[in-house]
Design a protein around this nucleic acid. Structure first.
Lengths: 129, 129
DNA sequence: ATCGTTGCAAATGGTTTGCAGCTTA
DNA sequence: TAAGCTGCAAACCATTTGCAACGAT
């Protein structure tokens, strides 16, 4: 019933937003905390979770669910893409393409609404070692 | 140093193995518990986790990691395949095919070691409603 | 001065582990 | 009987929530 209240601009919220703007890849809440604490040392993890959820609800952030690993989050509005998780450093990267024809994989009667593809291996940095 | 000890055949372990043999799809630990408790009512969830891990270590079970959902487990040795998760009933099913050319998705310098593909939508049962 | 926001700590949900008693071999 | 199991409860880890103090508007 009540008009949705305005999100206030706090130091913490700003630091969290900047963490994502600085990042060139999806961030986990823990990575976000570490990055944002460079601006606001006392920042707590609960505030990171609350603001991430808030940004997701606003549509500014998008959830990146991964098999067997905590979610990452990235700024939304990118074109369709998928992700690569490095088994060594555990960082997640965006990958461009998307294979076609997923619908042909389905059993009869199933309705396809989406898909997640996660590649894994070693990122460029970790492949050298 | 010590020779690996033999796994003992207990009522619990047998009930857990049968739960997977009865299932036509990958099971979560909770689903496994529910199924195995039909044979051993007092069965505890910790025992399910311990035996699942044990079966995985033996190679009889295989982990099915899913984005944003607890792991499922399935009897191993099947040919390469992927999974479908129903958004309504939360059950996971096997799907046959696998799209090619995943390697072309990679940024330069990245080494691909594996991939997970999860389709989601409605299973045949839930698509009707 | 409001009322949303924050940090802390406690609560959750899924999974693991310590331990004393039980069971298989 | 001895070693491996089991159930229970406590411990964990990631995430969420209650609450009183704080701060943006």
């Amino acid at each position: 019933m009540s008009a949705p209240t305005q999100a206030r601009q706090t130091l913490q919220r700003t630091a969290i937003r900047r963490a994502f703007e600085r990042a060139d890849r999806p961030l986990s809440p823990a990575e976000t905390l570490a990055s944002a604490q460079r601006e606001v040392p006392g920042l707590g993890i609960a505030t990171v979770y609350r603001n991430i959820r808030n940004f997701v609800d606003e549509g500014w952030l998008e959830e990146v669910p991964l098999p067997g690993a905590p979610n990452r989050y990235e700024i939304s509005g990118k074109h369709h893409h998928h992700h690569f998780r490095c088994r060594i450093c555990d960082r997640v990267f965006e990958v461009e393409a998307c294979p076609p024809d997923l619908r042909t994989m389905l059993p009869r009667g199933f309705r396809l609404e989406g898909h997640d593809i996660t590649l894994f291996g070693r990122c460029a940095g970790c492949a050298r070692s």
